[in-house]
Structure formats: C-alpha cells, structure tokens
Simulated scan of single mutants.
Amino acid sequence: MRSAGRLRLTRPRRRSPVRRLLAWRGWASAPATVGVVVLLAGLYFTAQTLIATQAQSKATQDQVRLAERGQNTDRFGRAIDQLGAEKIDVRLGGVYALEQLARDQPGFVDMAEDVFSAFIRTHAPAHMPCASGTAVDVQGALTAVGRLRQPRETWSYRLEVDLSDTCLAGADLRGAMLQQVDLNGADLSGAELHGAILRRADLSGVRLDGAGLRDVDLESAQLSPVSAQGGDFGGANLRDARLGGSLAGAAFYGTVMTNATGQTVDFTGATFNDTRADALRLARGNFTGITAWSADFSNSYLGGSVFAGANFADVTLRGADLTGAVITAVTFCAYRGDPEDPTCVETSADLSGAVLRNADLTGTPRRLLRLDGADLTEVTGLG
C-alpha cells in the first residue's frame, strides 16, 4: 500500500505536432511574413524579366547598329563609285551623296574631307594658264568641304585638308570654313571668298589676283609669297598673318593688319582707308604711291620701306620705326567732297616718337608732319 502522504510523480503528456502547430504563437504575424515572402518573390521574378528584356534590347540595338553600319558602308561605296564616273552629273550626285552621309554620320566627316580634297586635286590640278571658271562637280566638292568643316576652339600644328596645287580660278568660296587648309600653290585668281574663314591656312604661292576677299578671316594665315594684285581686302582680318609677294593695287578698307609680319611686300598703289595696321612688322616694304586715309601704323616696324609719292591723309605713325625709310614727295591731301573734285584739303601725319634715323624726306613738307619726340638722326631732305 502507498502511504497517504507520499507524492505521486506523473509524466507530462506530449502534444501532437498538430497541436503544437495550432498552439504556435507566431500565427499573429504570419500574414506579414507571407506578404514579405510574396513581395520578394515578385521582385526577383521582375528583376529576372527586366534583365532578360535588357539583354534582348541590347541584342536588338547591336543588330540595328550593325545594320546601320552596313548601310553606311554601302552608301559610302556607292558615293565613291559615282565620284569616279565619267559623266559630270553622276559625279556631282556622288558629291551630294557623300556630303549627306557625312552630315548624317559625323564619323564620316574626316573621310569625306579626304575624298573631296583628293577629288579636287585630281579634277582641278594647277596648270598654266588656269582657266577661270570651276567645273560644277569641283565647285560642289569645294562647297561641301566648306560646309562640313566647323570652327575650332583649339588648333593643331598640321594642315587638315590638302587643296594644294589646284586650279580654282573664279571659284565661289563665299562663307566657306577653310581653317587650316593647305592651299599652297593654288590659283584662286578672281575667286570669290567673301566672308570665308581661312585662319591658319597655308596660302604660300597662291594667286589671288582680282579675288574678292572682303571680310575674309586670314588671321595667322601664311601669305608669303602671294600674288593678290588688285585684291579687295575690305573688312578682312589679317591679324598675325605672314605677308610676302605682291599686293600692288589692293584695297584695304577697314582691314585689320595688327601684328602682321613680312619682308619686301609690294603695296605699290594700294589703298589703306581706316586700316588698323598697328604693330605691323614689314621690313623693306614698297609703299610707293599708296593712298592712306585715317590709317593707323603706330608702333610698327617699317625700316627700309619706301613711301615715295604716297598720299597720307590723317595717317598715324606714332612710335613707328622708319629707320632708313624713303618718304619722299609725300602729299597730304584728303578729298572730302565730290570724288571727281580734285581739290586738295591739306591734312597731316602724326610721327610723334617715330624713329626716322637715316630716313629720306626729300620733298615732304615738314609743316604737315607732327614730329614731337621723333628721332631725326641723320635725316635728309627735311625742309
């Protein structure tokens, strides 16, 4: 018999898995957990779909680019074929086709410029005499080059388009962008270059006789030697240009020639009207018979230059170096009325602070020269 006061130990009952599951305290937060799981699964499948879509899109874009590249190559090839045709109208069509390709695809611009320059050199080589009037296909190629090129913010040391030794007499290059173009030895006689950009271009040995050069930009261009007799440089920019050869009879109305340099340049009979030529450096220049009205040659070096028979009207030569210059029989007339009225209105020239050592001023009236502070050492002929 069991004693009445003895404790009885019993084992706790084990609950079944179902009961334990039903008794789980996390049932209260289960909906949130299930929602997170569902959200993460949705994001995963969305990401996989997006990756697949992007891969497919990239593959499509690659195919499109490949197709475009093939089309552009075909367009380029067809244009080259046309440029080599015998008929001039077919060649002109090739010029337009190649220019349009370069406009549509900027990556073809350099190749198009190379092709056009080779085309021009082949179809318009320099020869004597160079007949005036450019063939329509050559003119088309010139126009295309001038339109495709863009102004540069920075400059390289190499010439970028080779148009050297070409016959371009009478060509129309108005407004053309031809900066850093090699025109060495080209014949541009009678050509129209109004407003053209020729900065840093090489025009050595170029013929520009009778050419229209109004408002042309020739800053830092190489123009030595050059023949531009009778050329119209009205409003042109020749700043820092290198000059040489013959500019006889040329017109420089409102032209900027600041810091231009050169030697033995022939300006015989040229006209300088409202010309800014300060700091000009032209040793032994020939200014015989020039007409200079309101021109500024201050601080220029014109040593050994000849101004015989020149007409100065309100000309400034302050601080200029005229060592050994020949300034003989100079007149100081301004014709302010009717151009046909020969009446001379006397003016003067300002040579204040100028260096006139060994200069010859025979026949030039001193009373019309302002010589304050000028160096007149061994000057001859100054009455």
Rank of each mutant, 00 (worst) to 15 (best):
E86G: 02
A277T: 09
I88F: 00
T46E: 12
R78K: 15
D81K: 14
N358I: 00
T323L: 14
R152D: 08
R276A: 14
L243A: 12
N273M: 13
D372R: 12
A67D: 12
R149T: 02
G93R: 11
A196Q: 01
R284K: 11
V216W: 05
L208E: 05
A283I: 06
Y96K: 14
V34W: 10
V36I: 13
M177I: 03
Y335F: 13
G175L: 02
S294Q: 14
L369N: 04
D114Y: 03
R336G: 11
D338T: 03
T255D: 07
L163M: 00
E219N: 13
N299P: 01
T271H: 12
D104K: 12
V216H: 04
R200K: 09
D274S: 14
L243Y: 09
L356Q: 05
T60D: 12
S189I: 04
G170T: 02
A236E: 06
L198T: 01
G195L: 08
L148E: 10
L243P: 14
R214S: 13
D375W: 07
D74I: 14
L361V: 01
A41N: 09
R284I: 06
V181K: 01
F332I: 02
D350R: 00
I80K: 15
D165T: 05
F307N: 03
L282A: 08
D375E: 11
D202G: 01
A97W: 03
R158M: 09
S298K: 00
P129Q: 06
T347Y: 04
V38R: 03
Q180K: 05
L371Q: 08
M128D: 12
P365V: 00
L142Q: 03
S220N: 08
G35H: 00
A201P: 00
G170E: 06
R152E: 15
Y96F: 12
